[in-house]
């Protein structure tokens, strides 16, 4: 065989058709599940498909979704970030305290995002350079960041945000073209994250690290720097969600974002992120967050006690991971 016909043959052997490729994507099936749940709820209740309820669902899932984007990056790089809920509250507190003291929104916003990035950098440096397990470092940070948020606010509720009060509430609670602002921001961030995963060297490198960290080191990828940036990215997403959530709630207390990490990890994992590292997509995280929120909402609408929520979210994580194991055992992957 001549060289050119060999390379032609190689190029043309597109292994699987488009349809079968789509159908093998976990994201697709999770989307189908979410859709079926929505249809079922529309038929079973007359409260689900109301404009008001849908508005609530989309806005609620946006917060989880935004944080899940960062979590997906961390999981794809082979780590875990348990501190996202606490990062969210420290960001929310920072913006609130700053604005309540009479400063403008942009100052509070920059400070809050700066504080979040510092939290992420501390996580990242301890994990990448001190080589500590991400589980332990971020578990410690979960406690530290929330405690600092309490110190910062003296554990009081804040609901007056100074001169830019109305802007903050509009940003988090308002809508444009009928779409709640948190949802719009989620879609923009998801598109950007998706782009970065696929098209930036940063994305290639973080997936390489999650796939085989030793290989990444041997090929000269700046592994430690990439890792720090990944934890900073996760913290930044949590920080953004924190600011928006204050605006939506119109007030903030230090229990904001408590045990949020569970829903966020569930969203990422349901969306196809593999806890073993190396796999995950931005839109998977968004769809995962959507499914969780639809289920959560349905429990409320169907009159099932909210005490069951934890059971559902927890089971989801376990089922998604079990599903992964099952596919691996069958040699599907």
């Amino acid at each position: 065989m001549s060289n050119s016909s060999l390379s032609d043959a190689i190029n043309n052997s597109e292994h699987r058709s488009f349809i079968s490729r789509i159908a093998s994507q976990q994201t697709f099936w999770v989307f189908v599940a979410a859709l079926l749940a929505c249809i079922a709820l529309t038929l079973m209740t007359d409260t689900f498909a109301t404009e008001r309820n849908l508005f609530n669902v989309t806005r609620n899932f946006a917060f989880i979704g935004i944080v899940a984007l960062g979590m997906t990056a961390v999981i794809a790089s082979g780590g875990i970030d348990l501190s996202v809920g606490s990062t969210l509250v420290i960001s929310a507190m920072t913006v609130s305290v700053t604005m309540a003291s009479g400063m403008p929104f942009w100052a509070g916003c920059l400070l809050a995002l700066g504080v979040s990035l510092v939290v992420g950098a501390v996580n990242g440096v301890l994990i990448a350079y001190a080589k500590m397990p991400s589980f332990v470092v971020t578990l410690g940070m979960l406690s530290i960041a929330r405690s600092l948020a309490m110190v910062l606010s003296n554990n009081k509720m804040i609901y007056q945000f100074g001169p830019d009060h109305d802007f903050l509430l509009w940003l988090g609670g308002g809508s444009t073209f009928g779409l709640p602002h948190p949802l719009i921001i989620l879609l923009i961030l998801a598109a950007f994250t998706s782009f970065a995963f696929r098209w930036l060297r940063w994305g290639q490198h973080l997936f390489a690290i999650g796939g085989n960290e030793q290989a990444a080191v041997l090929t000269g990828i700046p592994v430690s720097r990439v890792k720090v940036s990944v934890y900073m990215f996760s913290a930044l997403m949590a920080g953004i969600a924190g600011i928006l959530e204050v605006g939506w709630l119109g007030g903030v207390t230090t229990n904001l974002g408590q045990s949020m990490e569970l829903s966020v990890i569930a969203a990422s994992v349901i969306g196809g992120a593999n806890l073993a590292g190396g796999v995950g997509t931005a839109f998977g995280a968004v769809i995962g967050a959507l499914l969780i929120e639809v289920i959560r909402n349905s429990l409320i609408l169907l009159g099932i006690s909210t005490f069951w929520q934890g059971t559902f979210v927890g089971s989801f994580i376990i089922i998604a991971v079990a599903f992964d194991r099952f596919r691996q055992a069958r040699g599907y992957e």
Partner: peptide, 10 residues
């Protein structure tokens, strides 16, 4: 390096 320097997910 045998399998060491290869990322299976890429």
């Amino acid at each position: 390096y045998q399998d060491l320097a290869i990322c299976n997910n890429l």
